[in-house]
Nucleic acid binder design. Structure first.
Length: 416
DNA sequence: TGGGGTTAT
DNA sequence: ATAACCC
């Protein structure tokens, strides 16, 4: 049944801004930006109309739009909460839901489509019509089973969006297609709060629209630069480029994967991750240059993190400290050191004991000293603490996979 | 240039 | 531990 998958990509509109408008409805009719440090990371459509772009500096945004209302969005808790509600809601329709960031979800609705298809074939006079847009205004042929499945998929996508709106008050876009890549590529065609289905005949048109190779999800800035050095700028360039040459340049694994991506092929399954594999908290700042300050920053980060881990119910077995040192050219240089958490400390994660904080601070400062010689001058611009390697405590129901998943997906290869 | 996440090597 | 990717 992998022959005709139907995948929905759902992408909430300006997610942080929507959440803030729900938290404070008076912001509804105003141009709104969500601020983190010196950046407007998201804005509502009111503000976008007035020229506020994604990741614009606060200074530029205020210049463009003096009436802009800003709310601080450095604490992700409200967004994380709402995001989980969205994923849970989608999970009520269908077990195969995969999160991508806080505001996107893939849903494999193949089984739902197959059910409706059978129901349809048993009914006498049924009329079927598409929900939302058809990419490239492609003509529909309901006698083509691929078309029919995707059209049923568009109806399901509409129901998912409707449920997210009526139950949570959030609007978003959806893309419906035969795999994750294509559903994601097509979902943003009409924005905001609209949906688009891609029929197979329009695949070449979609590929041709990828005028920069970096628009292909899975091809990031690094590979894009290397590809550009080979004269590859568009998805069509990539398709036309000899396989062998690509492999010698990027290695076989990467070359073959991105070559398929460039053709719109993507076999990767929709994978529900379940509970997070790590919890981290970070803070950026202009300058931190003494050990005392580092200790203070770490002590600021820990309580929030410990609270989140406590609510999760599992116990972390690894802790990591990440720093970013100031440098004029590269602002992307992060270093990290990690170590196992001593067993006697692991036990204390379940309780609300505060005597876990200072031993953890000690461990984190030791990790810090592995990277920085405090006798020499240093200049940090970011500190991050991450707990990972999370394990269920022996007899907990909470924290188990079952707590997060209503159903478990069948083992690979069990179908067929 | 935020504050997070993931997998691959 | 880092480097790549995603939002």
């Amino acid at each position: 049944s992998a022959a005709h998958r139907v995948i929905v990509h759902m992408d909430l509109d300006c997610f942080y801004a929507q959440v803030e408008m729900i938290r404070n409805p008076e912001l509804r009719d105003k141009p709104l930006g969500v601020q983190q440090k010196n950046l407007v990371v998201t804005s509502n459509y009111e503000a976008r109309k007035l020229g506020v772009k994604k990741l614009m500096s606060v200074k530029d945004a205020k210049e463009k739009c003096p009436q802009l209302v800003l709310v601080n969005g450095e604490d992700l808790a409200p967004y994380r909460e709402m995001s989980c509600k969205v994923t849970e809601l989608l999970g009520e329709f269908c077990p195969l839901v995969e999160r991508l960031g806080l505001d996107e979800n893939f849903v494999d609705i193949t089984e739902m489509v197959e059910k409706r298809l059978k129901r349809l074939q048993q009914s006498e006079c049924a009329t079927v019509s598409v929900s939302g847009h058809v990419y490239n205004d492609q003509a529909i042929n309901l006698h083509d089973p691929r078309h029919l499945r995707l059209i049923l998929g568009s109806q399901i996508a509409e129901e998912l969006r409707e449920a997210v709106y009526t139950r949570l008050g959030l609007t978003g876009c959806a893309g419906v297609a035969a795999n994750k890549l294509l559903s994601k590529l097509v979902s943003g065609t009409f924005k905001p709060n609209q949906q688009t289905v891609l029929l197979p005949e329009s695949l070449p048109h979609l590929i041709r629209s990828l005028d920069r190779i970096q628009k292909v999800p899975g091809i990031g800035s690094k590979t894009a630069k290397r590809l550009e050095a080979l004269g590859i700028r568009t998805a069509c360039d990539l398709q036309a480029f000899p396989c062998a040459a690509l492999e010698t340049e990027l290695g076989a694994a990467v070359a073959q994967r991105i070559r398929k991506l460039g053709c719109g092929e993507d076999e990767s399954p929709v994978t529900p991750w379940g509970p997070p594999q790590s919890f981290s908290d970070e803070d950026s700042f202009k300058k931190c240059s003494s050990e005392v300050e580092v200790k203070e920053k770490i002590e600021e980060l820990l309580p929030n993190l410990l609270d989140r881990i406590h609510k999760d119910g599992r116990q972390p077995h690894t802790v990591r400290l990440t720093i970013r040192q100031f440098s004029t050219e590269k602002w992307f240089n992060r270093e990290s050191r990690q170590c196992p958490i001593p067993p006697h400390l692991i036990q204390k994660f379940g309780k609300e004991s505060s005597d876990i904080v200072s031993p953890l601070v000690d461990i984190l400062l030791k990790l810090f000293h592995k990277m920085i010689d405090v006798h020499l001058p240093f200049h940090l611009t970011l500190l991050s603490v991450c707990f990972s390697n999370l394990k269920d405590l022996p007899h907990s129901k909470k924290g188990s996979i079952a707590f997060y998943l209503k159903q478990v997906s069948p083992p690979a290869g069990s179908g067929k």
